[in-house]
Nucleic acid binder design. Structure first.
Length: 593
DNA sequence: CGCATCACTTAGGAGTTGTTAA
DNA sequence: TTAACAACTCCTAAGTGATGCG
């Protein structure tokens, strides 16, 4: 609980917004913009907020009697609580995580806590448990849902829509806005990424008694489900969340927040890109400074200068400290350890090569070799001297001091802004280099995807190679071969027709024209297939979506579409267009990031 | 100052839906 | 009409960084 004086202070602040709003409204458009920019991480986020509260997962539905769980080969009827947890595991049987020792251990330990004394007595080994029927049951249920007749499917769709209408919207400052995650997370087994020590831990069902509601003081308080109460109802307009609860895995808060299409999120997104655009004005100075600092007599300063160089050049994440043993062992720039860096005086005919290999966010592997300036190389050698592999490379540096330093160069500048900045700049440059006005629509879109991919590679946005990749690639190759044969065939036919024309005169000229058109069409198809194959190959481990959604100023893409007559739907899906609604009237065809 | 807490953005995979070609 | 595949949405984990606190 907050101390009383702070609560009083917050309450007082809640009356500030009206005054802020009045001041904004009374000054022209320019002042209004500046006002927003200054305001975004400011205190007040809304004046009115009304919603229905989150939608709670329906109660557990017991298995039909025909579905059995077996222990040591014998069917065992489990208590409701134990059965529910068993189904969580059974549902996941096809996933790789259920084969991992840590997952199994954590699951089994938590499952046993839900068992009755007798069950606990009986069920002592996971490897004697047989969930196959449970798994089959859920697979069949999913299958049945998929093959439901049309009307039934329609009905389900309507029900989902009704739920969305009822719980999925809120009123924020007079506007009806979509909520992002209005459905509570159902209970489940925790699936961390990578080697997470808590994988398999039971994620508890969240009750209304765990949930804090945040809404306007004058608005209707959402009704908790019958027979339940909220943990707390508060009215804090300095935050954007509608509801919050503590999750039991890491004991951190989770929030119900607005959908990205909302005005509030849009303004925040816009603000993010405006900060990144301001970096453009000072980036040369910052670069000159960190290069100069490579020669500083102070170790701390040199470490900061090299770290910042990595963040700028390689688009590394900041690398905050993490609680050891509570999460997977991943690092970012500031938390790099000696073991993640290899230095090569000479390699591949180049000098001063730095090789970085580490697991980053989501345990995604970062693996890169870059040529660096001599001073960087020497500094790194020095930072690594007399250290163990497990020691921090930048031992004199913290993310806080790095960001503090950046704040001095530019207001609002933090390490992550460099990723946004470099990503957007790269997109803009690549688009400029790769697009030709006279190209076909297909090749323009392909150019866009190339530019997008360049950014994704810079940011190391990877994905697992799709399971069916090899197969579908092979199929595509076969198609290309068939098409090639068709093209050759069509060419030959055309030649024959031409020869015919020369020997027999005018009579077959119509079919000649047809044959020319057919060849042209086939060649076009072949070119498209080949382009598709190239794209597919180059994209197999690259995730384009993350950069598009989070790093690329949508105004760059919108301007590009306008300039080259590309329909925006070719670039952004419906949801993405809604998310970037803020950008459409802020980007003319000559917009420059 | 250094650690903890909180609120927000960023992230990849799973699952669903839509499209296309057979 | 259907199956295969690609595209997209949903889900929620995992980061960042501001602020609070001892």
């Amino acid at each position: 609980m907050l101390p009383l004086w702070l609560r009083v202070l917050r309450r007082c602040l809640q009356h500030v917004p009206r005054r802020v709003a009045c001041r904004q409204a009374s000054q022209g458009a320019k002042a209004d913009r500046a006002g927003w920019e200054g305001n975004v991480q400011n205190i007040v986020k809304w004046r009115q907020l009304e919603h229905r509260g989150p939608y709670f997962t329906p109660a557990y539905e017991p298995l039909p009697d025909s579905v059995h769980f077996f222990y040591d080969g014998k069917p065992v009827k489990l208590s409701l609580a134990a059965e529910e947890v068993a189904t969580l595991y059974g549902k996941m049987l096809h996933l790789e995580c259920t084969t991992k020792e840590v997952f199994r251990r954590n699951f089994f330990s938590d499952w046993r806590k839900e068992m009755t004394a007798e069950e606990r007595e009986l069920i002592t080994r996971l490897d004697k448990c047989d969930f196959a029927e449970i798994h089959k049951h859920f697979v069949e249920r999913a299958e049945a849902r998929r093959s439901l007749p049309k009307e039934q499917k329609q009905k389900l769709k309507e029900e989902a829509e009704k739920l969305q209408q009822e719980f999925g919207y809120c009123i924020l400052d007079g506007h009806r806005e979509k909520i992002g995650n209005f459905k509570m997370e159902p209970p489940g087994l925790f699936r961390g990424r990578g080697e997470h020590p808590k994988m398999g831990v039971l994620k508890r069902r969240v009750r209304p008694e765990d949930v804090i509601i945040n809404c306007g003081r004058d608005s209707k308080i959402p009704e908790p489900p019958a027979g339940h109460q909220w943990k707390e109802v508060r009215s804090d307009n300095t935050v954007t969340w509608l509801a919050a609860w503590m999750e039991n895995i890491q004991n951190t808060f989770k929030y119900v927040m607005l959908n990205p299409s909302s005005k509030l999120k849009g303004e925040m997104d816009w603000h993010k890109y405006e900060v990144a655009r301001r970096l453009r004005r000072v980036v040369d100075k910052i670069r000159a400074q960190y290069r100069a600092d490579w020669e500083s007599p102070e170790t701390k300063k040199r470490q900061l200068a090299v770290a910042l160089y990595f963040i700028d050049k390689l688009a590394l994440r900041t690398g905050n400290e993490k609680e050891e043993g509570e999460t997977a062992d991943t690092v970012g720039c500031c938390s790099l350890r000696v073991e993640h860096v290899r230095l090569h005086e000479k390699a591949d005919g180049q000098e001063h090569i730095v090789e970085l290999v580490f697991l980053g966010k989501d345990s995604i592997r970062y693996n890169n070799r870059v040529t660096v300036e001599k001073l960087v190389f020497q500094n790194l050698q020095h930072f690594m001297e007399d250290k163990d592999p497990g020691d921090n490379l930048f031992d004199a540096l913290s993310t806080a001091s790095l960001n503090k330093h950046l704040q001095d160069s530019m207001e609002g500048l933090t390490a992550k802004v460099f990723r946004t900045y470099n990503a957007s700049v790269t997109l803009q440059e690549q688009l400029r280099a790769l697009t030709r006005a006279e190209d076909s629509l297909t090749s323009k879109i392909s150019a866009y995807n190339r530019a997008n991919r360049a950014v994704a590679i810079l940011c190391n946005h990877r994905r697992a190679i799709p399971k069916t990749f090899e197969k579908s690639m092979q199929k595509l190759q076969e198609k290309i071969e068939i098409k090639e044969a068709q093209v050759t065939e069509a060419q030959a036919e055309l030649e024959r027709a031409k020869a015919d024309l020369r020997t027999h005169g005018e009579s077959k000229s119509k079919s000649l024209l047809q044959k020319q058109q057919r060849l042209l069409k086939l060649e076009g198809q072949l070119a498209r297939l080949r382009a598709k194959a190239t794209d597919k190959e180059e994209n197999k481990q690259v995730a384009l979506g993350t950069a598009k959604l989070n790093y690329l100023d949508p105004r760059i893409s919108i301007a590009w579409c306008k300039r080259f007559g590309v329909p925006i739907e070719k670039i952004y899906s419906k949801t993405q267009r809604e998310r970037f609604a803020w950008a459409f009237d802020r980007a003319g065809e000559d917009f420059e990031f």
